[in-house]
Design a protein around this nucleic acid. Structure first.
Lengths: 155, 155
DNA sequence: GTTCCTGCAAAGGTTTTGCACCATA
DNA sequence: TATGGTGCAAAACCTTTGCAGGAAC
């Protein structure tokens, strides 16, 4: 469920416009499948697997072939509009890249596979400090915590 | 290349002994493929893909079927002797779990795929602070930085 | 001798690719 | 109209599973 911001719009709807603009600005066409993927991701706020995207589009009667979904996700990642996250098991997930750099990380329950998001400024500061010390030009980072959720601890 | 510690032994060779002891202590048998995988990982110090393990064993004329390699890696992970790390692209890698909890994380070059390891105490502190705040029982964490290595920046 | 481990081969799931057709600009 | 996007189907890739034979205890 997308979170409303102060304007009453979602961060995702701004992302949708930006993604579509970026595409055409770079000479890519707004084909049917590609546009549908962008609109869906903006509406959902990201954190979807390729298969989720395909399935939800089917529910909306916007049919998009699996291959086109993968191609759209790959292109958007390449353009820096999405960030591909590989959790330890299962397929990759795709997160919106927002212009203010705001993002989150994940805690995965190794019992039931449930994933929750979190963000933490001091963790970000620690990552940036490392970025300054390495010869790599750091552009992104993934952080995943693994553990057991409350339900699985009880059961 | 494994890093020598103060005793002149490698951390990996201690790991090999511990892994073999742990296996028998828990009632598992020291079969040929399983033993070969453990010895290889200890000697190499971890950070290998399943396929690397199979290939290097073949080079040593210790043939181990792919399935047995995967089964050994899965068992060792389950016993807490290995940690499975999923980088964004490509197959999972397996890291030794050392008894003192010492471990490292990775920086991946998105240009050439090169991976280097790093460790950082303040990053670890930040992760532990989060662990204390969540209802999850945190048992492990993966951190991967993505960027462009010096070579790819130049080229 | 019994149980577990192993290897092969086949299946499983995710992602990529080839190609003919169609839509966008 | 020319180029590039799309969909289908097939392939590629990593990983898991079934099963018969062999090794460990």
């Amino acid at each position: 469920m997308p979170v409303d911001d102060q304007d009453g719009t979602t961060p995702g709807s701004a992302w949708t416009s930006r993604a579509l603009a970026e595409l055409t600005a770079r000479g890519y066409r707004a084909g049917e499948a590609r546009t549908a993927v962008i609109e869906l991701l903006g509406a959902e706020g990201g954190c979807l697997e390729a298969d989720d995207v395909a399935a939800r589009l089917r529910l909306q009667d916007k049919r998009a072939g699996t291959a086109s979904v993968y191609r759209a996700l790959a292109l958007l990642s390449e353009l820096g509009l999405l960030h591909k996250v590989a959790l330890a098991d299962g397929p990759a997930r795709f997160e919106l890249v927002l212009p203010d750099g705001e993002h989150h990380h994940h805690i995965v329950c190794d019992g039931c596979g449930q994933t929750v998001a979190f963000s933490d400024p001091s963790l970000e500061r620690a990552v940036h400090a490392i970025s300054d010390q390495t010869s790599f030009l750091i552009e992104a980072h993934d952080i995943t915590l693994h553990g057991i959720c409350e339900d699985c601890q009880a059961g």
